[in-house]
């Protein structure tokens, strides 16, 4: 029984990280229709910035928000430098440009910082655990889930209540008509990127806190997970991204828990096999009906 509880905790924490990552990708996709393959690099940026701030002696209470800000700035820069010139191009073009951007950023880190992984001196409380009814729970996991829940609630409020949030949703549905409302839709786009940077920064903190290392290629896994989760959930659907994140984490946790030891290395293969299956059955992702609904209008 305690094992199940353990797995559930793992699932919730992992799902939170994946959900945040997927959401970051989905936000940009819903407004611009493009997949930001450099989204993983935002995590790398936040990681390296944490290293830098720690070296400069900045207290951790500040490092965390600062690293998130660094991620947001990087995201807005990406939009300005790479994505704005690509506006209006066909999907395959922006896909490849996006891929290229990711490679360029990774290589830049490789060149200017070095291939050796840097250690991030996380504060000791990230390693703390406590016990509840025989189940050992990491403080970090609880924090991950709680922060994510809070962030999602805030995001929901923003999208439903504030004019900018509603405008963002409108722009993702129909960019031209949003401009007809007298709203400067073009100005919404850097905002969407900043939002994705925020999500990536927060996800990055929790993601990196486990391994405590950052290297030029660190962003690859967050991108992969976030991307797959966003697609499973139905690309462009924000609620789908969150659902996809927990679904993917659920799959991984399930396989880890149930598959015989010998097959452990093949978990990834199984997971991706399931992904193809899901796409096969629901080409538009889990939120297929919702997508169809929007299209009908």
């Amino acid at each position: 029984m305690t094992e199940v509880a353990q797995h559930i905790v793992n699932w919730l924490a992992l799902g939170s990280i994946y959900a945040l990552l997927a959401l970051g990708i989905a936000v940009v996709f819903s407004v611009l229709g493009l997949i930001n393959f450099a989204h993983g690099e935002l995590v790398t940026v936040s990681g390296y910035s944490m290293v830098a701030f720690a070296i400069w002696g900045v207290p951790w209470a500040l490092i965390i928000p600062l690293s998130v800000v660094a991620s947001m700035i990087a995201a807005v820069l990406m939009e300005r430098v790479a994505y704005r010139p690509l506006r209006g191009a066909p999907v395959s073009t922006t896909l490849l440009g996006s891929l290229a951007l990711s490679i360029v950023i990774q290589s830049a880190f490789l060149m200017f910082v070095g291939a050796r992984p840097e250690s991030i001196p996380f504060p000791t409380w990230t390693q703390d655990t406590f016990e509840v009814g025989g189940v050992v729970i990491r403080t970090l996991d609880v924090l991950t889930f709680a922060t994510t829940a809070l962030l999602l609630a805030l995001l929901l409020m923003f999208l439903r209540r504030s004019v900018r949030g509603i405008a963002l949703r409108a722009a993702s549905e129909n960019f031209a008509v949003t401009r007809l409302m007298g709203i400067r839709a073009n100005a919404l786009i850097p905002g969407a990127f900043a939002l994705s940077g925020l999500l990536a920064g927060v996800a990055g903190f929790f993601f990196l806190a486990t391994a405590s290392l950052v290297a030029p290629g660190t962003g690859f896994i967050p991108l992969l997970k976030g991307f797959i989760a966003a697609v499973i959930g139905g690309l462009g659907s924000l609620s789908g991204a969150v659902a996809g994140g927990f679904f993917l984490a659920g799959l991984e946790t399930l396989f880890q828990a149930t598959l015989p030891d010998g097959t452990a290395p093949f978990i990834d293969a199984f997971t991706f096999g399931i992904v193809i299956l899901v796409l096969f059955v629901r080409p538009h992702g889990l939120r297929a009906e919702r997508a169809a609904l929007v299209e009908r209008a």
Binding site: R169, A170, E173, N174, M181, G182
Partner: peptide
């Protein structure tokens, strides 16, 4: 028409008023 299908009627009107 091109109403914002994913937004409610109220939200559509809110958009109409812009900022």
């Amino acid at each position: 028409r091109q109403v914002f299908g994913g937004l409610t009627v109220e939200e559509n009107l809110r958009m109409g008023a812009g900022m």
